[in-house]
């Protein structure tokens, strides 16, 4: 893909290690603005590590990460977020002891205008009426599906330019998985760039504009969804 697009998320030749062993090796990819770009890969292929690298939670030891022209590598996580990025983390990671509304407010933590925060709350509650009903309930007492809504709503509260989504379907019932993918598609319609990391090949490719396949810490294939679904790398990455 075109890596010269100024508003894209560009990851160039990054390697990331926990302790000494490299989990990611020389990974390059681009998430084009306003599109859904997906990263497919089986368990342990390094997908979550890539998200953590972008966020600065596990900084890469070499390579370049750029978003809207800003060099993100080496920045502490809150500065990465300040670049207009939000994350819907793997496993939802809601604050169990916070109410639904406190969770949502955490999503807009860097927004200083209270009026703006209230406006975003209204938008999220309109999109998820269920959360509005439960706004004072502790998030830890919600069902898995409701927690997924909190996690997504929290990401939207950031009003991000780029949304990183890590395995939204993990641990959810099939009907909720489908619902989640529909939501992600609707988020893209708001012009938000989405980088989606998933194991679930078919549903992910169905909503993506472009995809990459990660296997053992390396990008082994990329292309348009229609082409990607036919490649042997996709099958090998999962079954090989």
């Amino acid at each position: 893909m075109n890596t010269n697009e100024p508003n894209a998320l560009v990851v160039e030749k990054i390697s990331t290690a926990y302790d000494k062993a490299n989990v990611l090796e020389n990974v390059s990819l681009t998430a084009a603005p306003g599109k859904i770009t997906c990263l497919l890969g089986s368990n342990g292929s390094g997908k979550t590590t890539l998200i953590r690298s972008i966020l600065g939670l596990t900084p890469p030891n070499k390579g370049v990460i750029r978003f809207r022209g800003l060099d993100l590598r080496g920045l502490p996580t809150h500065r990465v977020i300040a670049a207009g990025i939000a994350c819907i983390p793997e496993g939802r990671r809601v604050f169990a002891k916070f109410s639904v509304e406190e969770n949502l407010r955490m999503g807009a933590y860097q927004e200083t205008s209270d009026a703006e925060v209230r406006e975003r709350l209204v938008r999220v509650y309109t999109a998820f009426p269920r959360l509005s009903e439960r706004r004072t309930q502790l998030a830890g007492t919600l069902s898995g599906g409701e927690q997924a809504m909190v996690s997504i709503g929290r990401g939207l509260m950031r009003a991000p330019k780029l949304l990183l989504v890590d395995e939204p379907s993990l641990g959810l019932a099939p009907i909720l998985v489908q619902e989640n993918f529909n939501i992600i598609r609707r988020i893209r319609e708001q012009g938000i760039t989405i980088f989606l990391v998933e194991q679930n090949v078919h549903q992910t490719l169905a909503i993506s504009d472009y995809g990459y396949v990660l296997s053992k810490g390396r990008v082994v294939a990329e292309g348009k969804p229609a082409d990607l679904s036919k490649t042997k790398e996709v099958h090998e990455a999962y079954f090989g």
């Binding site: 502490p76 002891k97 999503g107 933590y109 860097q110």
Partner: peptide, 18 residues
């Protein structure tokens, strides 16, 4: 309170942890 519950997620929300 967010940092006390889940340091990493708090960071991901944009909290300046240090």
């Amino acid at each position: 309170r967010a940092v006390a519950q889940d340091e990493e997620t708090a960071k991901t929300m944009g909290v300046n942890f240090s």
